[in-house]
Write a protein that binds this DNA or RNA. Structure first.
Lengths: 197, 197, 197, 197
DNA sequence: AATGAATGAGCCTTCATTCAT
DNA sequence: AATGAATGAAGGCTCATTCAT
C-alpha cells in the first residue's frame, strides 16, 4: 500500500526501450539485458513487469498502432471532405515532421518478420492490419470509389504505405526526399478515377 | 583432380534449404542445424561450404533477386510496347502462377529485417533495390512519365510491390484473391496520367 | 540492495579453478565447462562473472604475479642487507616450502605460450616481467653490480628463474632436489663479482 | 613404382610448416588446415603423411633438437679447450646470427606447454632435456666443476638458456640486445669458480 | 600420392527465464 | 518493486580425422 504502483509507467518505459533497441538490432538480438539497459533497469525487473519477451513485443504492436491511429485522428479532425480524410490517413503514416518516428518505422518493419514466424504476433499484427484496411475501405468508399473496387483500392494503398516504410527504413535514399506521402496521394487519385481533390 | 567438386550444387541446395526454413521461422530461428536437416546434410558440411551463416543469407539475396530478374526478362521478351514492359515488371513480381514462390516472398520480407540490422545484408539488399529502381525508372520514363516525375513514380510502384509482398505474406486475405498485380498496374496508370493500358 | 553481491568471491573461485585445470591441461584444453566443474559451478555462471575466457586468464596473470610479489615482500621484510633482499627475490620465486604452488608454476609456464599467441595476454605478461626486471635491476645495483651491468645481470637472473620454472614443471628431476634457489643465488654471486654469498 | 616416393621431403615440409604456424599461433590454434596451407598442401594430404596432429609435433621436437645439436657440433669442432666447448654449447643455443631461428625459439617455448599436458610430448621433450643435461654435465665437469656440483651447475645453465628463450620470445626487449649468450657465459664462469676462460 | 567432401564432437558464448533476498 | 545470481538450453563455429575417388 505504501508504495504507489508505477507498473504502467514502467511497462511503457520498457516498451519504449524495446522500440529503440529493436529498431537497431531486430527482435532476436534485442536481448532483455539490452532492453533493460536502454531503459535504465535490470533484466530481472523487466520480467517482473512482463511475463516474457513476446509479451513486450505484443505491447509494442499496440503501442505503434495506437500512435498511428492517434495521429490519424488528430489530422482527420480538421478534414472537411471525404477525400481530405483519406489524405489524412496517408499523411498520418507517411508525412515527415512532428510525430514521425524513424525507429518506430524500422521497428514495424522488423515486427512484420516476427508476425511471420510467431503466430501470436501474427494475430496481433493481422488485427491491426484488418482494422486499418477496414477504415481505409470506408475512406475510399466515401471518397468515391466504386463499391466493388473499394477493398482492392484500400489494399493497394495500404500496400504502398507499408512498402514505403520498408524502402525508407532499409534503403536510405530509395524514396526521394519527402515524396512518399505525395506519391501515395497521387496513387489514390489515380485509383479513385483521376479526379483531383 | 582426384575427386570432382560438387560445391556449386551443394551450395545451391543449402541456399534453397535456408529459403524454406527461413520462410517459416525467420532468420534468427533458422539454425544451421535446421537448414542442414532440411537439406539432408550435416551442420558441419554446411560450414564446409559456407564461411558462416551470413554468407548463406548473402547467397540467398542473390538467388531471390536473380529469379525475379529472370522472370522479368522472360515476360519482357514478348512485350511489344513500353507500357507492356512496365506491366511485365509488375507481373514478374506480383502475378500468381508459374514461377511464383510464396516461400521466396516470405523470405524476402524477413530478409528486409536483417538488412536493417546487418550492414552487409543491408548493402546487398540496397544494391538489389537500387538496380530495380533504376530499371523501373527507365520503364516508367519510356512509358511516358514526365522525366522529373520518373524517380518518384518508380519509387512509388516499387513500394507498392514490396508492400504487397508484406501484406500477402503476413496477413492471408489482406489482398483480395489475386488482385495485387492488377491493382499496381492501375496505380501505374494513375501515376502516368490516367491513360488506359 | 535487495541482494548482496558475491562477485568478488566467485571470481576468485573461478580464477583458482582455472589455475588448477590449466596446470593439468593447458589453456586450450581448459574448457569453460571443466573450469566450472572444478569450481562447482555451471558454465553459464562463469560467463556471468567473466566476459569471456580470456578475461579469466587475464585475472589469472594478476593473481599469480600478485602472489609472487606478496611472497617477495614478506621475505624481504626480514632482510637486512641489499644482498639479502636479492636472495629474498630469488627465494620468493624458487624456494620450496610454504607458499610454493606447483600448479601456479605449471600455469605460469603455460601462460607464456598464450602470451605468445594472444596480444592482450602478451601485454599483461610483459607488464609483469617489466616490473620484475625493474625491481631486480635495482636489487642487483644495490647489491653492488656495476651500474652498466645491472640490466644484463637482472635479465640473466630472471631468465634463470623462469627457466627453472620450466624445467621443474615439465621434466621432473631435471633440477636436482631443491637446488634451484641455491643455484641461482650462486649465479648471482658469480655475476656480482664473486663476493660472498 | 613409376612415382618416386617423396614422403621424406613432404614430411619435412609439413614439420617446417607447423613450426611457422605454431610460432605464431601456438599448438591448439595451429590447425591442420593452416599447416597445410602454409606448406601449400591440402589437409587430407597432411594426414596421409602423419597419423595425427601429435605425430607432427613429435617430429617437430626432434627437428628442433636436432638443429640445435648440429649447431653445437659445428661450433664445438673448432673448440680447443673444455671451456671453449662449454661456450660452444651456450652459443649454439643463444647466439644470434646464422642458424638462429626466432620461430624455432617461439615454437620450443610453446612446445613446453604441450609437454606439460600431453604425456607423449612430455616424454619426448624430457628425452631431449635429459640428453642436453647429460652433455652439459660432462662439459662443466671437463671445465673444472667439482664432480658433485656438476649436475646442479648443468641444470642451472640449462635453466638460464631455456629462460632466455622464454623472455626473448615473449617480451621483446626484456633481454638487452644480444647479451644472452654473454651473460650465460658469465654465469658459467661464476659457477665454475670465477676463473676466466 | 593427392584431393576434397563429409562427419562428429566439442567449445565458447548468448540469452530467456527463474528465484532468493 | 527491485536486484543480481544462477540455470539450462541452444546456437554458431572450428577442427581433427576419415574416406571415396
Amino acid at each position: 500500500m505504501a508504495r504507489p504502483t508505477n507498473t504502467d509507467a514502467r511497462r511503457a518505459e520498457i516498451v519504449e526501450a524495446m522500440l529503440r533497441v529493436m529498431a537497431r538490432r531486430g527482435y532476436a538480438r534485442a536481448s532483455i539485458a539490452a532492453i533493460a539497459e536502454e531503459a535504465g533497469l535490470t533484466a530481472g525487473l523487466v520480467h517482473y513487469h512482463f511475463r516474457n519477451k513476446q509479451a513486450i513485443l505484443l505491447a509494442l504492436v499496440e503501442r505503434i498502432a495506437g500512435v498511428a491511429q492517434a495521429r490519424f485522428e488528430a489530422l482527420s479532425a480538421s478534414a472537411t471532405s471525404p477525400r481530405a480524410r483519406l489524405d489524412a490517413f496517408i499523411d498520418a503514416h507517411l508525412a515527415r515532421g512532428e510525430g514521425a518516428d524513424p525507429d518506430a518505422v524500422a521497428c514495424w518493419v522488423a515486427l512484420g518478420t516476427e508476425a511471420l514466424a510467431q503466430p501470436e504476433i501474427g494475430a496481433a499484427y493481422g488485427r491491426v492490419i484488418a482494422g486499418q484496411l477496414e477504415a481505409l475501405t470506408q475512406l475510399v468508399r466515401d471518397a468515391g470509389a466504386a463499391p466493388g473496387d473499394a477493398p482492392r483500392v484500400a489494399a493497394g494503398l495500404l500496400a504502398a504505405i507499408e512498402g514505403a516504410f520498408r524502402l525508407a527504413a532499409i534503403v536510405p535514399g530509395a524514396i526521394p526526399d519527402g515524396s512518399a506521402a505525395a506519391t501515395v496521394r497521387a496513387m489514390a487519385s489515380g485509383l479513385l478515377g483521376g479526379e483531383d481533390r
